[in-house]
Design a protein around this nucleic acid. Structure first.
Lengths: 140, 140
DNA sequence: ATTCATGTGACGATTATAGTTACAACGGTT
DNA sequence: AACCGTTGTAACTATAATCGTCACATGAAT
């Protein structure tokens, strides 16, 4: 994960929560994030498809689909993953099957990598959008 | 992290351990990984710079610098990170300082992101190369 | 000296991402 | 019904990271 979508997504959702009485346009959000409005709409589309926000075509003002303490960072993280990118760590394919290590390395790697990924995901699902917005609100 | 270097690095180190009585060339290792020898030498260079393996220019046969149970996956993970890439999750820079959310989002994100990263790193440092090589050995 | 291996620089191909332009479709307003 | 602002999305460009590859200088050993 070294794109900015995760961070921008949290930014968007925080704005929606903290300015829920205002109907924010993608243009306005783009101004806060400091990027192009289409970038916002693209990410908003992912959040919408994941069921985290509610939008209607043509009308400004998205809203969260549920309370901030029921939206975990794992929800957001997964929402902005492109194309079934389930795995945190890539494993090289086609190691040499004629080598005893090459033949078995993939399953051994998958074993440890999935443990690490699970630790990350457990933490991400224990962190909610509420923690971010509460933190932000305390600074305003 | 979606390059293969982490996986290949573990593969290399596993080979060095399980065939420690043989002097492996980068060409041989490349055959097991199924890639080019230069790719192996590049990654071996990172592992060497990180102090995980001992090599000598011009002579085949690298070796581990310490026992497998003292080489954690975090050691390896960090060794193959390119250019001071410390952070797991990127944060967009230059959010709008005139917006109360834009002004504070970075520190709020850093707060939660670093908690998640720490959870991952704790797990990675609890997993050692020994676990991988033991697992591999049991399949041979 | 010859030979083989490592370490590195350089280059091309591939891929992911971010930003941008353009535009169709939609809704609310008048 | 016509208009206008907005969303959703396709298309294109620029940029950056990565991998494979060639080339070659350097080191070590026979």
């Amino acid at each position: 994960m070294n794109n900015n979508r995760f961070a921008v997504a949290v930014h968007i959702l925080s704005l929606l929560e903290l300015m829920k009485d205002t109907r924010l346009t993608s243009e306005y959000i783009a101004g806060s994030v400091n990027t192009n409005a289409v970038v916002i709409r693209r990410i908003m589309g992912m959040l919408s498809k994941a069921g985290l926000v509610l939008t209607s075509p043509g009308v400004a003002g998205a809203s969260l689909s549920r309370p901030t303490d029921q939206i975990t960072l794992l929800d957001i993280y997964r929402a902005v993953q492109s194309g079934g990118q389930e795995e945190l760590f890539a494993i090289h394919d086609k190691p040499n099957p004629d080598c005893s290590v090459g033949r078995n390395i993939q399953s051994s790697l998958e074993n440890v990598f999935s443990q690490a990924q699970l630790a990350l995901e457990n933490k991400l699902s224990a962190l909610t959008l509420d923690q971010v917005t509460t933190d932000l609100a305390s600074k305003m």
